[in-house]
Amino acid sequence: MTHPAKLTLGPVLFNWRPEAFRDFYFRIADEACVDTVCVGEVVCSKRTPFLAPVLPEVIERLTSAGKEVVLSSLALIMTEREANEARQLATADAGFLVEANDISVASMLAGRPFVAGPLLNIYNEGTLAALEELGAVRTCLPAELPADILVTLAGAAKGEIEIQAFGRLPLAISARCYHARSRNLAKDGCQYVCAEDPDGMAVDTLDDEPFLAVNGTQTMSYHYLDLLHELPALRARGINRFRLWPQNVDMVAVAALYRAVLDGAVEPADAADQLAALCPRAEFSNGYVHGREGHLFVEADL
């Protein structure tokens, strides 16, 4: 393990109120042992205007605290307005890496260093190479990949490889807003009801089994990804950067747990117990990395 492991805090995917959003990032800046922090609206362009006023101070605070700031793009770009906003982000040249979550954004960034985001379809060496040729210096891989593919891609990458390690997994993005639909509203008149569920809206089956979570136009896993147990094996196989998705829990403490396991200071099993205590309502899964159903929690070594 020649490289020290790095932690990235992914962008907040939920519609948190601007003050909550700001306070969250201020605390991350001041207290969280993460190396990189992503900010920006990924899910719905209707939310962007609410974040815009607080973003500069958030970025400033994070930068002052020595965090690397990455600006995350929207995941699904359909309108000219969305494309123009993405172009502004891509060409601002404000000294921050931009994370492309739609291929159009990667194309706007061509020739400059950027981050290939976890919502791009990067499944193999050919695609990874094409994006790196375009300028990707870091690539966060999709949620559904098993460990052998993560490791293969880490071996093939010229730049850094990052994998998702904590939080509800982004599983799908749509033009339709399911939060609005659940309230019999249209997306155009959504009343921003997604703000009522800061961790997403739980979706149960007809047998009352927890299954998915809805975050506006995004569908997520009900389960929180927990790769604490797998971290040492993944590091040993060449993966050095791990992404934590913000949830409405003590993310400073969550980051500290992941850091402690990466440093070998805490046993993964103990850390998992502490994680469960930090996320009292959560259920956990790690199936994808084991090559299984994403919702499963597999108790086995990689």
Partner: peptide, 11 residues
């Protein structure tokens, strides 16, 4: 092509 619901449930 941007949906992992199926693998989440079925692998």
């Amino acid at each position: 092509g941007r949906c992992a619901l199926s693998s989440y449930a079925t692998g």
